[in-house]
């Protein structure tokens, strides 16, 4: 394919091979420079007019989207924190309310209990008074019986021993003894 170029080029031999370095062939340099400049101009316009503004816009849009999303997330987080605070407050309120209810119930029970205790105490004191009266009566009866038995026994003893004592002296003596 390159067989004919040897006639018109000093850089290629008859076999189509390069003579020396093709890089240094002066015949080819203007061609490369011309097309390189065209290429660079085209690439420059493609990049600066289309690609760079477009990619820059996409990147800016993306970073603003990310910023917005982060802001929204922050807002939601704040909301969540507020909700948690409200929940904690409600919980604390419920707890104090429950404590109040418990205290009220306790007080009620206490008053009822006090009333019942007072009633029971009153009943007990009435019963105790009755019992004391009964005991006192029984004790008085017993003392009287003992006195009578003591007088009779003393009189009988004196009679049996042969002494004569009037009943009044014996009774007085027994009474003084009983008192002591």
């Amino acid at each position: 394919m390159a067989t004919q170029t040897h006639d018109i080029s000093t850089c290629v031999d008859a076999g189509g091979s390069a003579i020396g370095m093709p890089q240094l062939c002066a015949d080819w340099i203007p061609n490369q420079v011309f097309w390189l400049i065209i290429t660079l101009i085209v690439i420059y316009f493609v990049m600066s007019r289309i690609a760079i503004p477009r990619i820059g816009a996409v990147l800016a849009e993306r970073s603003s989207t990310i910023t917005n999303d982060i802001a929204a997330a922050e807002e939601l987080k704040e909301k969540a924190v507020a909700a948690e605070a409200a929940y904690q407050k409600a919980l604390a309120d419920a707890r104090t309310q429950a404590n109040e209810i418990i205290a009220a119930a306790k007080a009620e029970i206490q008053t009822e209990l006090d009333a019942e205790l007072a009633k029971a105490d009153a009943k007990i004191s009435v019963k105790a008074a009755e019992s004391e009266a009964a005991i006192a009566e029984i004790r008085a009866g017993a003392v009287k019986s003992v006195t009578a038995v003591a007088k009779d026994t003393a009189k009988e003893l004196l009679k049996a021993m042969g002494g004569t004592v009037d009943a009044k002296t014996v009774t007085a003596a027994i009474n003084t003894r009983m008192k002591g």
Binding site: M1, A2, Q4, T5, I8, S9, C11, V12, G16, S17, A18, M21, P22, Q23, C25, D27, W28, P30, N31, Q32, V33, F34
Partner: peptide, 20 residues
């Protein structure tokens, strides 16, 4: 011929290589 790959060739025909 390791340098033959760098030879500049016209795309169409075999004419001389002008700047254009």
């Amino acid at each position: 011929h390791p340098l033959d790959q760098f030879i500049v060739k016209p795309m169409f025909g075999d004419g001389p290589i002008m700047w254009y």
